[in-house]
Design a binder for these strands. Structure first.
Lengths: 158, 158
DNA sequence: TCGACTTAGATGCCATGGCATATAGTGTAA
DNA sequence: TTACACTATATGCCATGGCATCTAAGTCGA
């Protein structure tokens, strides 16, 4: 168990630590698999999937979804364009912005990567999530974190 | 609710998205508050707190805790030393590595920052966690994400 | 329809992490 | 005690994001 007296308050710093470490390790592990099979990393996969599911989005839409800055998002799109996976098209109703869409290559890539992503994610967390009749996010993350660390999942190379 | 048929399997991609977005926004929001009050960001606070609680750690210990590479960790320590918050001391039993400890300044800083950190974290998530009788990590994170996004918490500037 | 304000995005500089590689120090077996 | 493999960390280059700033393009009221 975690906290103080009865069956109440969560250990927030501990919960936060579990949250961050789970995120890091899952991200690392997904990066490894996606890079190996498709030559992209998770953040790129997420951007491509968003564009596939929301064609005609603007840079600001992506930024809001991922809670990253507009500038960073603009650079993300630059890179996707450079790879030939996405294109900026002029927005007829506002010349300051562009409408973003995937190219055919981008579409094929994201569809292929999605299978890898979903499959790997299931391997990584399905067990931990199903295993116990957890009743709180804290416990779930805590357990997930233990498993990831025990199995050295998501531990970086360098 | 989230998934398919009965009361079973979690929507894993959705769970993962919630996890990552929660982490991003909480990190952003904590960064803002810590930077404003103490001139550090969350990753620095976490490193300092780890060193306070595990004096004499080696670079590899930090790397394992945070699931980041050894190289990155070495650079993190470089920066903490440059700020005068930590020091590398020769490891008498292995001259390849150093033992890391906080300076008095580092100790004061982390103790001060810890109050800010804990308080802000409670503001950010205590409500969401207590509010409903949630029974699964997925629901907790999902709700937390909604609240963070609704209140524009952790949305970056640029 | 002009000028002031606002908005969307692009760009530059910095910080941080990944990954590959380099280097020093250890341990071990011949 | 030497050579070889291994370990701990440092370092270099690259990718990505934050934040500040710049510009073009909308908006709106006088």
């Amino acid at each position: 168990m975690a906290s103080k007296s009865s069956g109440d308050a969560v250990d927030l710093p501990g919960f936060f630590a579990d949250l961050v470490r789970c995120e890091t390790r899952l991200y690392n592990a997904l990066n490894d698999r996606l890079r190996e099979r498709h030559g992209i990393v998770t953040s790129q996969f997420e951007a491509l999937r968003y564009l596939r599911d929301h064609p005609g989005s603007r840079v600001a839409d992506l930024a809001a979804e991922f809670a990253i800055g507009i500038g960073a998002t603009s650079k993300t799109i630059d890179r996707l364009e450079k790879q030939g996976w996405a294109v900026r098209q002029p927005n007829p109703s506002d010349r300051r912005s562009s409408l973003l869409t995937l190219t055919d290559d981008g579409l094929q890539l994201v569809d292929a990567a999605e299978g890898t992503f979903t499959e790997r994610l299931a391997e990584l967390i399905a067990d931990a999530l199903k295993a116990s009749p957890m009743t709180a996010a804290a416990q779930a993350l805590s357990e997930l974190r233990s498993v990831l660390e025990r199995d050295q999942i998501g531990t970086p190379t360098g």
